[in-house]
Design a protein around this nucleic acid. Structure first.
Lengths: 327, 327
DNA sequence: CTGAAAGCGCTTACAG
DNA sequence: CTGAAAGCGCTTACAG
């Protein structure tokens, strides 16, 4: 192709791949030919030859969930820095789909996998045979030997709850517990919640369970907390994420209950949405950029064979106090 | 590879690709071998041979913008139905990045491109030389001969504004006009806004310009409308999208202005967020699933060579009245 | 510093 | 219904 116009043969390859030892004039000639013929290297051929594609997959429940959308935007940016392209797999938190992701559906198409599972079990992971490097986003699943990066959910939940205690609240409830064996994150945040209450010498006012972490679940759970409890309504609620909190907020405001005066509210995730709610939502902000950067770095280590033992990396978090707990 | 365990050679290929004429027992034998050897066809090799990858790109400004996240989730679902994988390119609405997307960066890696540009000009598109099939999401750019799918922005904006008129509001403002030559959508919605006012015999109370359609822009613009206008505050505002409206809402509530009593508010996009705001946001809902389905269908037509003339497809929309204009 | 050759793992006609 | 061969477009040693 271009060699016709150029004169050389795989010197083109050298030029395209930025090999140093090409005479300047040859290089110019080749570059001119490339421009003229609008030559584009065939990525599939390169991939086949090199055994890697420059593409990684990011598997998550749903892009329509703000936290995952915000995480995805950062993962794509981090991958872009390394020249990697990101394809997205949506699992809906469905175990069958999560197993599919892990089973190597896209083998040889992707170099690595970043995976944020919801329903996957340790057994599913132990049964994995695909050898594509994988990094887990979020809690470790079972005893599986994979790199993963997560915030310290217990400590973060403890801080959130302690903040409510410091406000002088004593009837503190939680929204977001899950029955499913898979709700690892929910379990850790519940543990932190209880730690904080125990330290303060308080008993939990109520713990509302949810099927998922969506706004609708938060709205329903809060309604249950208001009417269902014989002990009366809480004066503060720790919601295990911001969408739950926004749903809960909607229920409270619709009933004329003042936030934070009557009930203080705190969430988790620091999604954009919560910053513009009225009242603006107090929350625990995981360092999403750090999670994305670290995850991509871990994957890079795996790809280069540098990594040894599976690593557990803890990303930072901080409490952001806003109107929903102020005053 | 598998043929060793199997006995045949590319009969494997036939089995893998579901060719009909393979004897049942041979098929079983091959399938057993595949399972045993954990054989996975190499997608890169297949792509190279077949000249297509089964991967399409979705290029959009940012996944952290709720509308695009909600659109992306549907595009991925629609593509999945056809067995396609979707990779995401984020442009930040930056013209240089948008030109890169259109220039064929991922040539031979993707079979097609779904593109929602913000800053791209007709000239940029006219200069395109890459031959990857492309479908535009949103307004047509310049006179470019590409398929595109969009809602009827003028009609939709007109309905939104007419709704405010029907409420009895007479001091109607808009937030979301853009100076940039690229704000095609903003221009169309402004046109619809003005049509509706003209039909009602009203003059526009004010039109606020914004740099982008983010919450912060809406908040600032609304503050300007409240204090900056010699004619006093409006009694209704049409925001060109929901994030602008949510920003505006925040400004209003922070100042103790009642919505909709003092000022009615309407947005555009029907993002999840607006449904849980208090008051819940009246909005124009574009049929996002239809947009995604139609866009993927158009791309499929291009890929199969079925399509002839570039098509302009108009997706549906409907007004959803909620609390921010009720009463 | 540049050429000629082999091979990555598939699939597609083409024979049998 | 199944085999043998060629070729998709690259890159990587290997010569020169």
């Amino acid at each position: 192709m271009a060699e016709r116009a150029g004169v050389s043969i795989k010197t083109v390859s050298n030029v395209v791949n930025g090999y140093p030892h090409v005479s300047p004039e040859t290089r110019l000639r080749v570059e001119a030919a490339i421009a003229e013929l609008r030559y584009r290297p065939n990525l599939s051929a390169r991939n086949l030859r090199q055994g890697r594609s420059g593409v990684i997959a990011l598997a998550l429940p749903d892009l329509a969930i703000p936290y995952f959308a915000e995480l995805a935007t950062r993962v794509i940016a981090a991958a872009d820095q390394r020249g990697w392209t990101v394809l997205i797999d949506q699992t809906q938190g469905d175990r069958a789909k999560e197993r599919l992701v892990v089973s190597g559906i896209r083998a040889h198409l992707i170099d690595g996998l970043l995976f944020s599972p919801l329903a996957l079990t340790g057994g599913d992971l132990a049964a994995r045979v695909d050898s594509t490097p994988m990094v887990l986003l979020g809690e470790r699943v079972g005893r599986s030997p994979y790199d993963h990066v997560a915030v310290d959910n217990v400590a973060a939940a403890e801080e959130a709850t302690a903040h409510l205690v410091q406000l002088g609240r004593r009837r503190i409830a939680a929204i977001g517990a899950q029955k499913a064996a898979a709700g690892v994150t929910a379990r850790l945040r519940l543990r932190g919640f209880r730690h904080a209450l125990a330290k303060a010498g308080l008993t939990e006012h109520a713990v509302a369970h949810v099927a998922a972490f969506h706004r609708a679940d938060g709205a329903t759970a809060m309604a249950g907390l208001l009417t269902g409890s014989p002990a009366g309504p809480p004066d503060a609620v720790f919601c295990f994420n911001d969408t739950l909190a926004l749903g809960a907020l909607r229920t409270l405001l619709a009933r004329g209950i003042r936030v934070p005066d009557d009930i203080a509210l705190i969430g988790f995730d620091d999604i954009e949405d919560g910053r513009y709610a009225t009242p603006a939502l107090t929350t625990v902000a995981p360092d999403k950029s750090q999670i994305a950067d670290v995850a991509v770095d871990l994957l890079a280590s795996r790809l280069s064979g540098t990594a040894a033992q599976p690593k557990e990396l803890v990303a930072g978090h901080r409490l952001i106090v806003r109107e929903s707990t102020l005053h």
